[in-house]
Write a protein that binds this DNA or RNA. Structure first.
Length: 120
DNA sequence: TAAATGACTTGAG
DNA sequence: CCTCAAGCCATTT
C-alpha cells in the first residue's frame, strides 16, 4: 500500500477521534477495518492509534467481546513478538487466512513484522 | 469490596 | 535470539 494512502487513513482516524464523541471500542473497530490485506498490526499499535497508548489490555477486551460473525479482519492482529496470540481452533483458522493473504510464517510460526507490519 | 484475569508490551540480562 | 518481571487497567470472579 502506498505511504500517502496509508497516512490518509491514519489522519482520518485521528480526525474521527477528535471530532466524534466515539468510544474507544469504536475506534478499535475502525482501525482494524482499515488494516490492508497482506499486512498485520500489533495490539499496542491499535491502542496508540486510538489515542490510548496504555490501553493494550482493553484492546484485548474489545476483541474478546466481538461477535463471532464479525467481519472485521481480526486475524491481522498479532502480538509485538510476531506471533498470533489466539489459542486453539482459532489459531489455525487465522493462520490460514494470513497465508492466503500472502503472509509467510517462519519455522517457529513467527511473522516478520518488518516485512508485514502495518507501520505508521 | 478485594482479588484475579487477559488474544499485551517493554526493557533488562 | 530467549526468558522474565513489572507495568498496565477495565472487566470478571
Amino acid at each position: 500500500m502506498r505511504i500517502d494512502v496509508k497516512n490518509n487513513i491514519i489522519n482520518n482516524l485521528k480526525i474521527m477521534s477528535q471530532e466524534d464523541n466515539q468510544t474507544f471500542a469504536h475506534q478499535v473497530y475502525a482501525i482494524i477495518a482499515a488494516i490492508p490485506s497482506g499486512n498485520v498490526i500489533t495490539y499496542g499499535q491499535i491502542a496508540k492509534m486510538a489515542g490510548m497508548p496504555t490501553y493494550v489490555r482493553q484492546v484485548c477486551l474489545v476483541l474478546r467481546r466481538l461477535p463471532k460473525e464479525s467481519k472485521l479482519p481480526c486475524h491481522r492482529i498479532i502480538n509485538s513478538q510476531g506471533y498470533l496470540s489466539v489459542k486453539g481452533d482459532t489459531y489455525q483458522k487465522y493462520k490460514l487466512k494470513l497465508i492466503e493473504e500472502g503472509i509467510k510464517f517462519n519455522h517457529k510460526d513467527k511473522i516478520d513484522l518488518k516485512i508485514y507490519g502495518w507501520n505508521n
